[in-house]
Simulated assay, not measured.
Amino acid sequence: MTLSEETTELLNAAAQAAADALAEDLVAIDVTGVLPFSDAFLIVTADNPRHLSGVKSGIEDDVHEALGRSPRVEGDQNSEWLLLDYGDVAVHIFLREARDFYALDKLWNQAPRVNITEVSTTR
């Protein structure tokens, strides 16, 4: 399947914000047609709980500034996994141990990956 231009723009904005917040191991997955509630996943890793919170805030702030969109947030400051649900894009922010345990990358290994290699760590 192909992501819409709007979904691609949101995915890229979220990925750039995550990279700017120094998140690691960014993976974008196209789940269009597979899931009824989302078109893409962005999965990223944070080093520690404070970094997890910083990545969350960075994505929320940058996406809102760029696109005027705000997510529904699942999880809290004590979580090992936060979900920013933008509807068409679900951003999963994990601590390393939780990402390894839940293994969403492996769970969705049959779904196409979206190229986000042009996301840079500097603006």
Rank of each mutant, 00 (worst) to 15 (best):
L52H: 12
V44F: 03
N12K: 15
V34F: 00
N78M: 14
G58A: 01
Y86D: 06
I59L: 05
L82S: 04
R50N: 10
T45E: 13
A14I: 02
A28K: 04
L26P: 07
V89L: 01
K56L: 14
S79K: 10
I43V: 11
L67P: 07
A19H: 08
A14H: 06
E65A: 06
P36K: 00
T32A: 00
L42C: 07
A15T: 03
V27T: 15
G54A: 13
A28H: 06
A46Y: 07
G87D: 12
G54R: 01
D76C: 01
E74V: 05
R72T: 11
D100P: 02
V63T: 03
L11A: 14
D61N: 14
V73Q: 01
Q77E: 15
H64M: 13
V44A: 11
N12R: 15
V91Y: 12
G75Y: 06
A17I: 14
D61Q: 14
R50G: 05
N78C: 09
L82F: 13
V63N: 02
V44P: 04
E74K: 08
L52D: 07
D30C: 07
Q16P: 04
V27W: 10
A46T: 04
S79D: 10
H64V: 11
R69K: 09
S53P: 00
A46I: 01
S70R: 12
G58D: 03
L22P: 03
A13N: 14
H64K: 15
D20H: 03
D88I: 09
G87C: 03
W81N: 03
A23Y: 13
A98K: 11
F37N: 13
N78G: 15
D25S: 12
A46E: 05
R99W: 11
A66I: 00
Y86A: 04
S79T: 10
Q16G: 01
V91A: 02
I93S: 05
Q77C: 02
A66N: 01
V63H: 03
D88P: 09
F41T: 09
A15S: 13
F101N: 06
E74W: 07
V27M: 10
E97L: 00
D88M: 08
Y102A: 00
N78Q: 15
D61F: 12
F94H: 07
D85M: 05
E24R: 13
I43Y: 10
T32G: 01
L26S: 09
S79E: 10
I29D: 10
A28F: 08
Y102L: 00
D39R: 04
Q77N: 11
D47M: 02
V55A: 01
L67M: 08
T32W: 00
D62A: 14
A13Y: 14
V91H: 11
A21I: 01
F94S: 02
V55R: 06
D76M: 01
G87A: 06
L42P: 13
R96G: 11
A46L: 02
P49E: 01
G54C: 00
A40R: 03
